[in-house]
Amino acid sequence: MKRISFILLFSIFFSGIVFSQETSNKLPSVDIKTLTGETFNTSKISNDGPIFISFWATWCKPCIKELIAIDENYVDWQEETNLKVYAISIDDTKSMSRVAPFVNGRAWEFEVLLDANSDFKRAMNVINVPHSFILDKNGKIVWQHSSYSPGDEEEIYEIIKKLAVGEEIKHK
């Protein structure tokens, strides 16, 4: 009985939170690192156009698939929407130094940052990777998605196209 009442309380509380999703918000300010080890504060993530942020790791297969799919379209999307992609690696000390040669070896042109102790990941409430966010040009988070399936890039493209022409994104 005690257990059930707990679950009940939990879910009521939880639903209250879910409804509050309506409000969009800005990125938290967390110190992470560039590929050369210098400090980068996440409040500096900005662009004159839509921003796509992907939390990924070199050991995460679906993450890499998602970034490949974005990479294949990146030149076109940049031209059409002025999109900027930030790939936030959560590789810890073990594989952190793999990130630079890995990214260059694949000739990716994203802004790549290192979140070695998952500080930014925690601040963004990301549970598992891949997890991605889209921000409008004012830095407001308008969309987020966890996991990746082939074809998810179609939805991403629809949203960044809308943002590029100043259309409002409604939460689904």
Binding site: S97, R98, A100, P101, N104, G105, A107
Partner: peptide
């Protein structure tokens, strides 16, 4: 003692740890 060295440019990356 932990040492990491990498060299990379577009299309190629090398890592030694």
């Amino acid at each position: 003692l932990f040492i990491n060295a990498s060299w990379s440019k577009k299309g190629i990356g090398i890592l030694l740890s």
